[in-house]
Nucleic acid binder design. Sequence first.
RNA 1: AGCGGGGUAGGGUAGCCUGGAGUGCCCGCCGGGCUCAUAACCCGGAGAACGGUGGUUCAAAUCCAUCUCCCGCUACCA
Length: 507
Amino acid sequence: MPGVSLPKFYIATSIPYVNAPPHIGHALEFVQADVIARYRRLKGDNVFLATGTDENSLKNALSAEKLGMKTEDLCQRNSALFRDLVDSINMSYDTFVRTSLKGDHWKMTQILWDACNASGDIYKKKYSGLYCVGCELFYAEGELDGGLCPEHRTKPERVEEENYFFRLSKYQDRLIAAIEKDEIRIIPSSRKAEVVNFMRSGLEDFSVSRSVNRAHGWGIPVPGDPSQILYVWFDALGYYLTAAGIASDRKAFNEMWPIDMHVIGKGIVRFHAIYWPAMLMSGGFEVPRSILVHGYITVEGEKMSKSIGNVVDPMDVIRKYGTDPVRYYLMKEISTFQDGDFSDRTLKDVINNELVGNLGNFVNRTLTFISSKLGGKVEKQKLGDEDMELVGQITGLVGEVERMLEAEQLNVALLKILEISNLGNRYFQNSAPWKLIKEDEAKAKKVLFICANICRILGILTYPYMPSSAERLLGYIHETPSSFEEAKKLSNEFKVEKPEILFSRAE
RNA sequence: AGCGGGGUAGGGUAGCCUGGAGUGCCCGCCGGGCUCAUAACCCGGAGAACGGUGGUUCAAAUCCAUCUCCCGCUACCA
């Protein structure tokens, strides 16, 4: 293998259904993936970040019919909402896949299907399911409310139809082995245990198609059998192959695959950790290297739901408080792996206390001081033992931040970053450079030299979380977020511009 | 029912995997200080026997067992 190219890192979010507008939970997943992507870039990886929308569900066809519009147009419109969100949240995606567009994605299904078929893992069988005529949908037992359709309050019929099935059962042992040995690393490990546990009780084959009639002709036809439409698995899960270029640039695809990390919600673990790797094994593709599973967001302590009417539109929040504060809140206040809460009140508190009062204030007082009292320049000063101790503490924290990021503990890493800013404020306060400047200029310069370095470190470390703010901060000291390693070193001199306020108070 | 996750000061959290003084963070409360800074910042204080019980250990929030409360998942639900 040629050793000159950068290590690649392919990471992707799941693709949301477009039959409902984005909510704050979608934003969480986008930001998580983006933070990891940006961190990996700082570490020097060649990162590819994929996202998109899942548009081939029957529900789209049904609501389009109701609205009297073409399904294509409805999808286009709703997909745009998600695209607006990923742009507004400043996600650095490299590709955005729309599964209803008859291009690479449709070609992908042919490739994947053929490969699995060639392994003898696709066969026809009668599918029997609970079907609500009103909804025109099959329901899982768990989705029913007291045995009734949650929407129509009617008893669904048992309906049979001949569909294609995928031979999941054949892969049970291989899957268990792959996950137990962390060939597919499931993060956090509690989810891994869940998955293994589930598999041990036996895996059943699953259906991978629906009749064209039932699908209302919407979706991707089964390769070689236009009377059937692909069900979600070969379609939506396959998007990861599409994004990597399987149908457009096979050479690039071969370099990109396997995917290094899936970022998904807890509700779809099974499909990503079991169905999907099995399909890949069957098709002769390498399995995903890791799957990061996040929790769900409640709103003011309550489950988000349309009927309660408490669904939070992330675009509203972004418009109100700004992109970076929202990113910060999602990463810091919501545990990376567990459920978390969204609260307007907490969001304001966090902005005012942590971003404005702690981080923003430290940067502002340091840079303002340098630009107004020291002519915008500081160079290296002789450091004493106490200073070296502080520097050592900071370096130690940088190491912890790195460790936490490597362990995908995005919230804990952010906590550590704030500690650095905290130390900075304390040091500034206790050193009182505003007094020193009148008595001992060299000493004042030394304090500011250290503080400027802390600002620089903070700029690099916060970059994955709050890219525009970090770039602005680093811009005031004529730097850019180039590499994570830079956060482990001190810079020897600074040219400082008079800073603008980094974060504004939230009212 | 089975499996999994949670129960840490008034509220919210981190720590638990890889035991070692209740250690930390945000809010709130009380008392001081500072004035470089976005009424921001700093210091001190009150406040928790880390859900209950039992065990392992020199040592447990951290490991084991059991009980209890909350929340998820249990197959074609993204």
